[in-house]
Write a protein that binds this DNA or RNA. Structure first.
Lengths: 228, 228
DNA sequence: ATGGGAATACTCGATTCCAAGTAGTCGAAT
DNA sequence: ATTCGACTACTTGGAATCGAGTATTCCCAT
């Protein structure tokens, strides 16, 4: 159990080898052919590293080593019994137990007050426009595929992605509306902070003013931990 | 430019130092106090590595080195002008330009056919239950905080998380309904695949049968790339 | 006064990641 | 006939990651 279950690419490798023995390059080609590159991050460095780690853990084994002409060797790997068990267990876990992830946009939202609110409104508007286009494009290509007879099974991960994307679009629209009409809680203090930063006051002076003007609001910066 | 913009923890460090100079341990303490650990992944190893990389890139600088008693040194860092620019640019990017991410559940969904459909239904039901609980708990604690007067600004990233979580709950409910009533496209072939795997037929034989029984459907495995 | 747990402030090293590079092969077009 | 670009198949090295460990001090109850 050298490596924990970290990189889902390792799971994808197990799933492929569970179907059929193959060499690493063929794995990446197969994954790309089946459009798994959208849902599983593939890159050569990781792929070969991941294969070696699976080998060390006895989850896969070398079946044969081919050489044609002067090309590099191709090592064909197959799955072991332990590998099949690991695949089933890992996939079972991933499907049934949510894991906390850290999308970059979530980080950006939480650090957002470092920029002035009017700039942020601009930036979020751009993001919203981009995501609306992406959503429409995604829905359209999905619709065409379904109309042409593609079973949903083959693109369920894409449906999931679109569901989350739609939720983000709704979130951004609502958030922007509240920012624009000034009803967003904390906006006044946020704006004042950047007004004061544009002066040559020191940090301490700025905070003194803010605490004075927005006492109840700013007290919450330190009380955040009272709620979950 | 040693390290690109990879780890958002580096951005968080820039934001903190933009407000006030401090030593690494204080950064982690401040982030935790403000409940940023939910949106930015913090761990000591990464923190010290990230700080050093920012130092190498001239985005932060050493302000002083304190020592009290026999404790380890505390190095206090401050942001540089280049660091301020980098912070603004990076945050601007993150807020305005969507980046493709790879949630583990998306990978799991795309690899899901490796398990039998009835098992998957079970697993997704468990996930749905867990996410419904999480959603309710999250909404409740958020509601309490808002009722107690917390400005939304201080938990906007949490609102975003809840929006995505709600979307996942809806997606899972709808998906499960279609799976349960048998209307999900591709389900029959999927079920047959696992029926055949339970026999002692070879892989090639299994595929011959499946292609024969579900020709139009399975042809899509290789045609996936025709659509986006 | 003393033992134990929490908090402070890092350090370490084995593993993992990843973009870029390398190096051969093949087919089509100039 | 040969250049070109796309494909095949990996290698490399420098970063980044992450959990666990270390060592000290503070505080509080016994």
């Amino acid at each position: 159990m050298a490596t924990a279950r970290r990189n889902p690419l390792a799971l994808a490798v197990l799933v492929l080898l569970h179907e059929e023995s193959m060499h690493p390059y063929q794995m990446s080609a197969t994954l790309k052919e089946r459009r798994k590159e959208h849902s599983v991050k593939i890159n050569y460095g990781s792929l070969y590293a991941v294969v070696e780690s699976l080998l060390n853990r006895g989850l896969i084994e070398v079946r044969e080593t081919l050489r044609s002409g002067n090309r590099p060797e191709r090592t064909v790997y197959g799955i072991t019994e332990a590998g099949r068990r690991e695949m089933i267990e890992w996939l079972t876990r991933l499907l049934s137990e949510p894991v906390k992830e850290f999308p970059q946009f979530e980080a950006a939202l939480s650090l957002m007050p470092a920029l002035p609110p009017d700039d942020v409104i601009d930036l979020l508007e751009r993001r919203l426009a981009a995501q609306q286009r992406a959503l429409e494009a995604g829905r359209e290509s999905m619709g065409r595929a379904i109309d042409a007879g593609m079973p949903r099974l083959f693109a369920i991960e894409h449906e999931y992605e679109l569901a989350l994307l739609a939720a983000e679009v709704d979130f951004l629209s609502a958030f922007l509306a509240d920012l624009r009409d000034g009803t967003f809680g904390g906006l006044a203090g946020w704006r004042r902070l950047h007004e004061l930063r544009a002066t040559d006051l020191s940090n301490d002076e700025i905070w003194a003013i803010l605490i004075d003007e927005f006492k109840e609001e700013f007290a919450w910066i330190e009380r955040a931990d009272e709620f979950e």
